[in-house]
């Protein structure tokens, strides 16, 4: 799966994207977040409080209990501040 990070999540993690192998235990975004938090202290910090984070699967906003599959693009970012 391709994982994308933006704004301060990208800064904490130190990368704008990474590939993560999908396995059968990753049924939802929440399962994926549990795996990502183990990757580094930066990941842990970025994904510590998911109420501060918005999630998009294949570029569509979803909730944390949305299903994920092996070929998904999953993005994590703060609430938007454009305009």
């Amino acid at each position: 799966m391709n994982i994308r990070y933006f704004a301060w999540l990208r800064e904490h993690i130190g990368a704008s994207s990474e590939d993560i192998a999908h396995d059968q235990t990753m049924k939802t975004v929440s399962d994926l977040v549990d795996v990502l938090r183990q990757q580094s202290t930066g990941h842990q910090k970025a994904l510590a409080d998911m109420t501060l984070v918005r999630v998009a699967v294949n570029q569509v906003y979803v909730d944390i209990d949305h299903p994920v599959t092996a070929h998904d693009e999953v993005a994590f970012f703060p609430p938007v501040t454009g305009g």
Binding site: F6, A7, V80, G82, G83
Partner: peptide, 12 residues
């Protein structure tokens, strides 16, 4: 403008 500010993925 209201929807852009709350939904379009931009960060300042």
């Amino acid at each position: 403008m209201d929807y852009l500010k709350t939904e379009a993925p931009f960060w300042k």
